[in-house]
Nucleic acid binder design. Structure first.
Lengths: 148, 148
DNA sequence: TAGCTAACTGAAAAGGTTTTTCATTACGAG
DNA sequence: CTCGTAATGAAAAACCTTTTCAGTTAGCTA
């Protein structure tokens, strides 16, 4: 497993005083192996390839921890709102393909001017924002619809 | 109840061939009486002031209908993601006060340039977006923190 | 106004997801 | 290697949302 991303994430647990257990390794592998947001149940299923008896409870607890450490981000989906993807550090936004659910993170954020306008118009002091963009990824654009 | 907004919304049910029942009136009253997003359970509680035996199931069914008619919008909140506010027609974004949860809808959307950049950068064909902004509303700015 | 029918309703039950509890296990410091 | 503590899986509890179903109501027709 000569994956630099894995090592970086693994180190993150240790750096904050948390143990690097087999179940947590399995969850990392599951998340690293996909670009789609995965539900807790999907993470458990895929993680069991690495840790046979990975429990769903552990997935929830680990996601909670990883969310607190900003290692993972929750993605609100149209149906439910409970998908998770590995996070890129810093402020990012997601673009989710509406056909295959592939996710790209857009690093950098040029919403400043727009938010200034909003502040002026509403009288609110703006402290944060959440943006999700949906579209059709390059691969899916080259395929006839409804065949993915 | 000489509320013009109530009449407009009430008419909306009829205009689409749906009945205007007491439970539905109660739900409208509950939503009209607040600027915060309300959970289904909160809508039931407040609606019972107008319709004593308003059931939670009816709240869910009515919200589903109102969502389809674009009378109401789901707001994803930091904790859960299941609040509802009355919708302004057209494309809008929400600004939610992080202290008192008051919501303002921002009409109009100047994200076009940003989305063009995202399209170029990612190769995705952009089809939609969801933006929520958090901040501190004018009222709360004038109060000392932690006293709302 | 009275009668009629489809739409709507509340209660109960089912279905799903997330959290809590608790005895056991395993990480990793020493 | 040993030990203490954090982490784990299973079971149960707690939620939230949807489905089912028999009874009720809105509002059209006469």
């Amino acid at each position: 497993m000569m994956d630099h991303r894995f090592d970086t994430l693994a180190h993150e647990f240790r750096a904050h005083g948390h143990k690097l257990t087999q179940p947590r390794r399995a969850i990392l592998h599951a998340l690293l192996a996909t670009a789609k947001p995965l539900s807790p149940a999907e993470i458990q299923q895929r993680g069991q390839d690495f840790c046979h008896d990975l429990g769903l409870v552990t997935v929830y607890r680990t996601l909670e921890l990883m969310d607190a450490l900003e290692m993972v981000r929750a993605v609100h989906l149209a149906d439910g709102c409970h998908g998770y993807v590995l996070a890129t550090p810093g402020h990012t936004h997601h673009v989710v393909c509406e056909r295959c659910h592939a996710v790209i993170e857009v690093i950098g954020c040029e919403l400043g001017d727009f938010l200034d306008t909003v502040a002026t118009r509403t009288g609110y002091q703006i402290t944060g924002h959440w943006l999700e963009i949906s579209g059709v990824c390059a691969d899916c654009q080259h395929e006839p619809p409804h065949e993915a």
